[in-house]
Design a protein around this nucleic acid. Structure first.
Length: 455
RNA sequence: GAGGGUAUAGCUCAGUAGGUUAGAGCGACAGUUUGUGGCACUGUAGGUCGUGGGUUCGAGACCCAUUACUCUCCCCA
């Protein structure tokens, strides 16, 4: 028998880790609900057709596909062999796989909206907290199974939704006491720039190159633009664009000058201005940074886009989102605009851990340990313990009669702050000894007073 | 998909230039101490040195292969 192991990029979560993760989930969930979002859950697996082609060419490769059952059925042998040949040729076929694990929460949500748009009340606001899977190579801050927490609003084009989603980010990260900066940009601005550089068809090359700026620097970006056929004057324009700096207002006015009368550019700037000025009134604008280098990989975004970065932390983005004006048309239901955001819980966890920002209180569960001093004593202790549990005080009793040493060490290792000792003397007096392990203080408490004792 | 690094006790790691019987700390267990823990001391258990081949009189160490893990790039949360 070989040693048991885990699939690459997956993890077990021990008690402390689960509690810390619950703290993050609960914080985010409470904010979602505070803002009027309702929960949705979708299956771990979707039909492969639902997912394929939605995340770009790279994305398709990273989808975990599920092998069909019954491939050994002799009656289907020819069909399956043909299917297998297709797979070897790099194509997909439902003869071999027809289902796949969820890759994100947005596309399943779009599928859900497309299937149920007749029944839903619009604007429809849902949140979803579930794991997703990617067949990516694991590394620091990147896993093959990880959780996303999404909130989306569909059926409304109002920018008030963007305003609200930003407020969710700010509120949630304030509650987590994690300092962040929320970068915002607008696909319309990028589109305007592409048009200035010769046409909309340059948009993807342009965004891919721009996105790399902070990693590879302007010179390399310029080289890449050059190989993609951008002329010297176009490269110059991009350079001016990327070197815009100052406060948010200053940046936007410089950008307005640069893009001039371009309709998309003007619209994009107007929308950014709207959201930024709205948040001046909430005081949340101090977390917002207009960043024209922000592009985001997913091609379905059409309007404002967001990305959240933890300040002073070695970590990629811990959240992102944006407006997609026609996502459900992928599933045959056009004209349902939407906007959404996502929290990357696993990365948030890593950052909170790194910066020591988890509250100390969350890993404490059991409040009181009852010592076990023998069969008869334990029976009395058990009765007393149940009275405490009825008062919602978390307790446990050591399950066997052991030396004090061992029971003390058990309490200490589990971080149980109080112990209750009930031996023969206590049983006859109807009292118990309550000891606080941190202070070492010990007091005698009558049984009748124990349920009201403040531990 | 491309390129690095690592693999020795439950955990973290030593192990010199290839040389007898494989080392430490921590942890576990037991005792000093069967109604008062944390400390201390004493003792015990625990290893097919990732796997398979090769070189050698001799391999934990050197070579080849393989697997797992890990990190970086691409991309992403």
């Amino acid at each position: 028998m070989s040693k048991p192991s885990l699939p690459q990029g997956t993890r077990d979560f021990n008690a402390v880790t689960v509690q810390k993760r619950q703290y993050i989930f609960q914080t985010i969930r409470s904010v979602f609900e505070l803002y009027g979002f309702q929960p949705l859950e979708t299956p771990s697996m979707e039909n492969l057709d639902t997912l394929m082609g939605k995340y770009g060419e790279e994305g398709d490769k990273l989808i975990f596909k599920i092998l069909n059952n019954g491939l050994d059925n002799p009656q289907k042998r020819t069909q399956i062999e043909e299917g297998f040949e297709k797979v070897l040729a790099g194509k997909n076929t439902n003869a071999i796989t027809e289902r796949a694990l969820r890759y994100d929460l947005t596309i399943p949500f779009a599928r859900y909206v497309a299937m149920n748009h007749g029944q839903l009340t619009f604007p429809f606001k849902r949140y979803q907290i579930q794991p997703v899977w990617r067949a990516d190579r694991p590394q620091k801050g990147r896993y093959r199974e990880f959780y996303q927490c999404d909130a989306d609003i569909v059926g409304s084009e109002s920018l008030l939704n963007e305003v609200d989603l930003i407020a969710i980010y700010v509120t949630a990260f304030e509650k987590l006491q994690l300092p962040v900066e929320i970068k915002i940009n607008n696909r319309q601005i990028l589109l305007g720039l592409a048009q200035h550089c010769g046409g909309e068809e340059k948009l993807i090359d342009l965004t891919v190159a721009i996105d790399k700026l902070d990693k590879i620097g302007w010179e390399k970006v310029k080289e890449e633009l050059n190989t993609k056929g951008f002329t010297a004057s176009q490269q110059n324009l991009v350079e001016q664009y990327l070197h815009i700096s100052g406060s948010n207002d200053e940046k936007l006015s410089q950008l307005a000058t640069l893009l001039g009368e371009n309709e998309n550019g003007k619209k994009g700037i107007e929308e950014l201005n709207y959201v930024l000025s709205y948040h001046k009134s909430t005081g949340m604008d101090k977390h917002l940074v207009a960043d024209f280098t922000l592009a985001r990989g997913l091609n379905y975004y059409t309007g404002l886009i967001f990305e959240v970065k933890a300040l002073d932390a070695q970590m990629g983005s811990i959240g992102g989102g944006g407006r997609y004006n026609d996502l459900t048309s992928l599933f045959g239901v056009p004209n349902i605009p939407g906007v959404g955001i996502s929290f990357g819980v696993d990365r948030i966890y890593d950052v909170l851990e790194e910066k020591n920002l988890f509250p100390a209180s969350i890993d404490q569960t059991t409040q009181v340990l009852f010592f076990n001093l023998g069969e008869a004593e334990a029976k009395v202790a058990y009765q007393q313990m149940m009275l405490l549990r009825a008062k919602k005080i978390a307790c446990e009793i050591y399950p066997e009669k052991s030396k004090f040493d061992k029971q003390f060490k058990y309490a200490e290792k589990k971080g149980i702050p109080n112990i209750v000792i009930i031996g023969t003397d206590e049983v006859s007096n109807e009292t118990c000894s309550v000891k606080n392990l941190a202070t070492g203080n010990q007091t005698n408490v009558a049984f009748k007073d124990l349920p009201n004792y403040s531990f």
